[in-house]
């Protein structure tokens, strides 16, 4: 019984060792899942700026970031994907607080669209997109597939952590000081409002 299960378990192990992927990533690296996650991300990203109700926009942002986390996982960046889900759950909670405190849950009233500003802004965005896609189209390495990864590579938490706390130790501490300054700024501003 034990021996039988050992023999059965062997090819799966060898398979994972050759490709360097878990079966989950193999499933997700297929073009169908890639385009599904991309469509999810882009449609709900467009819903963020189309919706008139800010709460609906915030909820669309959550779904868009879930699609983005799926894309991160399909790029073997498990740590970044999980951080994406965890951090932006908190960030969206802060957004909800902003909406409730600042807007008082009022939907934006329907104002007349300034047609010139709308056309101008849309033209600027479309020009930007056209330039971006022209650059990507001329990029030669954009047509190559991704190279395979080693099966016995470290966790990406290991790699990122070593790099962050050794090579990028000084920028890390500078960012910490920056966040401290932002915290003090919040306290100072809210105190001034009370006075």
């Amino acid at each position: 019984m034990l021996r039988h299960s050992f023999v059965i378990g062997k090819p799966g192990l060898a398979f994972g060792r050759v490709t360097g992927h878990s079966s989950f990533v193999i499933l997700i690296m297929t073009p169908f899942f890639f385009w599904t996650a991309s469509a999810l991300m882009l449609i709900f990203g467009a819903a963020v700026i189309v919706n008139r109700n800010p709460v609906a926009s915030a909820l669309s942002l959550v779904v868009s970031f879930l699609g983005l986390a799926t894309l991160f996982v399909s790029l073997d960046a498990f740590f970044i994907g999980i951080i994406q889900v965890l951090v932006y759950a908190g960030a969206v909670m802060v957004l909800f607080l902003f909406i409730i405190m600042l807007l008082d849950l009022r939907a934006e009233e329907r104002r007349r669209i300034n047609l010139v500003a709308f056309i101008g802004g849309g033209a600027v965005a479309l020009t930007f997109a056209a330039q971006l896609f022209a650059v990507i189209g001329h990029l030669r390495s954009a047509k190559q597939p991704f190279p395979p990864l080693a099966a016995n590579r470290p966790d990406d938490v290991h790699g990122i952590g070593l790099l962050l706390f050794e090579r990028y130790n000084l920028p890390f501490q500078i960012i910490g000081v920056l966040i401290l300054v932002a915290t003090i700024g919040v306290i100072v501003l809210s105190k001034r409002q009370l006075r």
Binding site: M29, S38, L71, I136, L139, A142, K143, P145
Partner: peptide, 11 residues
């Protein structure tokens, strides 16, 4: 799926 697809979606 190539690098260009990811860059396209990102753009």
């Amino acid at each position: 799926v190539t690098l260009g697809d990811y860059l396209f979606v990102s753009g």
